[in-house]
Computed example of a mutant assay.
Amino acid sequence: MKTRCFAVLGALAFSLPAAAQEVTLKIAHFLPSAAPTQQKVLQPWCDEMKQASGGRIACQFYPAMQLGGTPAQLADQVKNGVADVVWTGPGYSAGRFPAIEAFELPFMVADATSSSKALWKFYQQHAQAEFSAYKVLAFHTDGGQAVHTSKKSVAGLTGFTGLKLRTSTRVGAKTLAALGGQPVAMPPAQVTEAIAKGVVDGSLGAWELVYPTKLSEVTKFHAQPAPGVAHPTATVLTVLMNKHKYDALPADLKAIVDRTTGEAMVARFGAMFDEVAADSRKRIAAQGNTITTFSATEVAAMKRAAASVEDEWVKQVGDKGLDGRKLISAARELTGTNK
């Protein structure tokens, strides 16, 4: 009898380490599950990790804030272990991550691919301290925000006057105000209804959002700079992992996470956002909507009007002990927008 008991206990002892090395990552974000971010980046990433780990890494998605709260609370949800991984915008938590906001300043981002690579370098060189509570898996930009409106086209600087537009970050709100518009803060999920009810006239937003949030159904006019020209504003986005969850992984699973994130994930996000933007513009044009391109003269006028946003930002981050001018200079050098 004793021999049988020892045999059973021995078998359990050998099986426990293997079981302990299996992990299911709870991944939360603020868009519907059909959004390109989940379907074209995060899900393929999970599939890659599952295959590389022989099935020992799995993912469970919680899109559209299914774990509760608001997009602004995602950073805390992953920090506190409510989620294991989140995709979110640091700027949704206004003022909490000031250094990384440099990439949301006016006319900093022209596309997703190049600006995301630049942002990753910027994070490594200038913003690691403010994300020390997380395992940072990636940073990227949305490629710049176009103007999506329901009733009239925005033709240059004067077109923003009095226009109520949803903005995603405090820097974006200040930029819109400097251009003469009226910023309104709200989660992406509420924007379509707000436009339909006339609460706002439209939204500043990446093309990636147009179909997942059904902006395509309530807006008829779209405006943006020419290809290669930086946009009035952009959103910084990030994939954050709970630090304790990462630290508890066996070394071989950590290696898989490391190998599939960082520069690899940054590049994947950048390419996807640019690809989806191009496809969305084609689809929008095909359904008869108007897409307006800002002229060089109009962009120059907008830059002059928004110049004060940088000055104000430098003062605000200076109060937090950061050298705003140095951060802006570094960001513009990395993005090539200092010309």
Rank of each mutant, 00 (worst) to 15 (best):
G91K: 06
P188I: 14
M272Y: 09
C5F: 14
A331W: 05
G144M: 01
Q145P: 02
L105K: 05
A7V: 13
G55N: 05
F30S: 13
A13E: 03
Q316I: 11
V41M: 13
R56K: 14
P250Q: 07
Q66L: 12
Q145A: 14
G144P: 01
A52C: 08
T219Q: 02
E333P: 03
T70E: 12
V218F: 03
S308Y: 11
A264D: 06
S115Q: 04
F103E: 03
P232F: 06
R283T: 09
G181K: 00
S329T: 15
W313K: 05
I328H: 10
Q182K: 13
P98R: 06
G202A: 11
Y62V: 07
D201N: 13
T261Q: 09
I27Y: 09
P225S: 04
I328D: 05
A194T: 08
M108K: 06
A206N: 01
A94M: 12
R96K: 15
A194K: 05
M272S: 08
Y211Q: 03
H244Y: 09
V154K: 02
P17E: 00
Y62T: 04
G55H: 09
G143C: 01
I284F: 12
L322A: 11
K339Q: 11
R166K: 13
K220N: 06
A52M: 10
K135G: 08
E217T: 07
H244K: 13
K50A: 15
D111Q: 08
M108F: 15
C59A: 11
N242G: 03
I256N: 04
V78N: 01
E104F: 14
T192Y: 04
G202Y: 05
G336Y: 07
W87I: 14
G68W: 05
A64V: 08
L322K: 07
Q287L: 05
A19E: 01
A234E: 00
Q316P: 05
G336W: 05
A173V: 04
F122R: 13
T3A: 13
W120C: 12
I284T: 01
V41T: 15
R332A: 11
S114C: 12
G81Q: 06
R304C: 02
E275W: 01
P63K: 10
K243C: 14
V229P: 02
T260H: 15
P225C: 03
W207P: 00
I57H: 04
G181W: 00
W87Q: 14
L16F: 04
N338K: 13
G55L: 11
P71M: 09
P63Y: 12
L105T: 09
Q38F: 02
V317L: 10
G321F: 04
